[in-house]
Amino acid sequence: MTEDTREERIKYLINKYYAGTATLAESGELRSLLLQGDDREMIVAQLEELAMVAPEATHISDEQLDTVFDSIVSSRTRQLPVRRYMYGAAAAVLALVVAGSLYFFTRKHQPAQPQQVAVTEILPGHDGAVLTLANGKQVVLDNQADGVIAGNTDENISKKGGELIVDGDVHPNNTALNTLTTPRGRQFALTLPDGSKVWLNAASAIKFPAAFAQEERTVYLSGEGYFEIAKKTAANGKRIPFRVVVNQKSTIEVLGTHFNINAYEDEESIRTTLLEGAVKVSASANTVTLIPGQQAAVTADHITVDKHPDLEEATSWKNGLFVFNGRADLREVMRQLSRWYDVEIVFKGEVPDIAFTGEMQRNLNLQQVTKGLAAMGVNFKIEGRKIIIYP
């Protein structure tokens, strides 16, 4: 194919897609051309030409073009901010990529894009927490050296990297409660006195004793935590139950299992997702028992069970990812970003109806993340640590 013929073909495909008349074969051909990257300048030229005659036409900036091509590449790559996009009711990856590319100058009935002000780079969250000991002393763990925590009278709580370790054998009768709190933009791990492990997501807290009582093990959670519970038996051979009291609204009882609890106050329900073992979820007079692969949602005193939840999405934060399965709307996505990047989210006017599918690494800075939002057509402005979302 000659260069002139190739240029005509690209122009033909872009216009057909924009008009909504491209066949599946033509859509596939266009996606292949976009992903190859060999015709970047030619494709940019055609997009610019279309922009000149499109409604509310504007020039495409270099930054917008970078976003467009980032979104194209990321549609098949896990290492970039967003792997797949979903906008409105569209389901085809190509439709989303191209729609995102043209969105900057074809969206109708849209106010002018708010001007971005110069912003300081906002880094992702990291390991860090505040430990409040039973005696009231507070220790910031972000820069705390490894070793025994000073002020811990029993000398059984120590720090190693991004993990707090409680040795329950030192003073087995001390059941006074300590509190580990992760502010927004922080996460931390905890090994409890029985050897059970807990991972705390951002904006969460867990109360735990220096040693568990012989007949039961109880902790208190708010926010979100992932649990791997050690099996323990009493002298009589009976298993010692482990209970998580969640926001004083629900109790999760387990014997030995892996599960995740999402109990943020700004979410609609308290969700417990079971990966291994068995748990009993109670709220008021209602109780359900979960088997692996199920999720319970507690709303007021009502419990519903999802037998086919997305386990990857529920536990992705522990694995360093944001994962969205097509059911996450813009409000839910922004709540997660708000906690991890410690930013305020403000919605001005009607919230855009956008559903998200794909995954994103949690180690990206906020500016990299917002490039993905821009490619989705999210209209926003950043002011300091505030993100304002417009219709």
Rank of each mutant, 00 (worst) to 15 (best):
2 T>L: 13
4 D>N: 07
4 D>P: 02
6 R>I: 13
9 R>K: 10
14 I>H: 00
26 E>R: 00
30 L>V: 07
32 S>F: 11
32 S>K: 15
36 Q>R: 14
52 M>D: 12
53 V>P: 07
56 E>K: 10
58 T>L: 11
61 S>D: 03
66 D>N: 12
70 D>N: 04
73 V>A: 15
74 S>I: 02
81 P>G: 03
81 P>D: 03
83 R>E: 14
86 M>Q: 14
88 G>I: 15
89 A>L: 15
92 A>V: 06
95 A>H: 15
95 A>S: 15
105 F>G: 02
113 Q>G: 09
114 P>E: 07
121 E>M: 12
122 I>P: 02
124 P>T: 03
126 H>K: 15
131 L>P: 08
133 L>S: 09
133 L>K: 06
138 Q>P: 05
144 Q>R: 11
147 G>V: 09
154 D>K: 09
154 D>M: 11
162 G>H: 02
164 L>C: 02
169 D>F: 13
179 T>S: 14
183 P>Y: 05
187 Q>E: 14
197 K>Q: 11
207 K>A: 08
212 F>N: 04
214 Q>T: 15
230 A>M: 04
255 L>C: 06
265 E>Y: 13
266 D>E: 00
268 E>T: 11
272 T>A: 06
273 T>K: 06
274 L>T: 04
278 A>W: 01
281 V>L: 03
290 L>P: 04
291 I>N: 04
303 I>E: 00
305 V>T: 01
307 K>Q: 09
315 T>N: 06
323 V>P: 00
325 N>S: 14
330 L>G: 08
336 Q>K: 14
346 V>K: 02
348 K>N: 12
360 M>E: 01
377 G>R: 01
381 K>S: 14
